[in-house]
Amino acid sequence: MKNIFTILIICSFISCKVNPKNETTEKQSFTLTGTINGDYSDYIYLNYGTIIDSVKVINNSFEFRGVVEKPVQGALNLKPPAYSHVVYLENSNISIQADFEKKILNEIDHNTLKINDVKGSYYAKIQKEYAEFYQTNQNKENFNSLLYDKLKTFIEENKNHPFSGVVLGEIAAINPVLTKNELLELYAKIDTTQQDKDYLEMFEMGIKNLDNYGVNKPFLKFSLPNTKDNDINITSFLGKIILVDFWASWCGPCRIKHPDLIKLKKKFEDTNFDIVSVSIDDNKKSWIQAIEKDNLNWTNLIDIDKKVNDELGIPAIPFNYLIDENGIVLGVNLSIIEIERIVSEKASM
């Protein structure tokens, strides 16, 4: 146990890969072997970068070989219609153990894998560790300080690993639980030459948005037309706590959340909480039809040329902002649970 501890300490300073097989030479290629429980004997596909590889599953086993320049996320899927499953590839011997399952999506059988275990991939190990930490703690009230403490060590140990860039990019742009300063402190630790450029861009974009309209900043003041074509200024909602939800009629994931928003509105109907939906539809007819279909009984505004959407730097929809009675941002892209917690504390009759 003491030897492993020593190796980890040394490794965290010179960033070597912790390889369970203690290989002294760095491997230049990967093998991905797997066993699949269940009655499946057709092809399995592995995508990474621009490569699509395929092998037949024989006697419940398969093996892929290849080379990656640095650790990457790849995707594994059985014969379509199928779900895609993320695999973390790096030049080592990786083994996967999974169960074959059929799942119905949109009334069609899809071939899926329930991945039970992944061995030999450091990337998979740290991703799982991070995901479990996030899942266990994300609804705690002090999640932001828990996450910051966790990432301080995590990033230090993995400063050269592409996954650090993934984590910081995603937090900055999508779920800004940490403050701009905390993010910049963590970012300063990573070796940016080892990171995927897209994630670095995502991080920069997220920081810029936090600068402009992050937590504790005044929200953007804007005016957009409602369903009756009257211009409504967002400042007319001062005095209320509002959830500004960005969506569009063509966005399936947005529309699936509308029943939750309706429940939320009902829960706080005797308070000064309200919802304002802002659509980036470019077709008014589709927009209004969707409002009627989904029963959005609150203020609906349309951002036809996406001016507000672009000014806020919204990367994807659905995306929301929770704004307090003084027009200050309380949260960016919060989950329903987080919104309920904050509104329960702050809303008044």
């Binding site: 995603e170 861009e201 995502m202």
Partner: peptide, 21 residues
């Protein structure tokens, strides 16, 4: 609910790769 959250995390930290593109 727990399963969905875990899936969300896998998607959050995986599929959000290249969310800009």
């Amino acid at each position: 609910m727990k399963k969905i959250i875990y899936l969300l995390l896998l998607i959050t930290t995986a599929s959000y790769s290249q969310i800009l593109e």
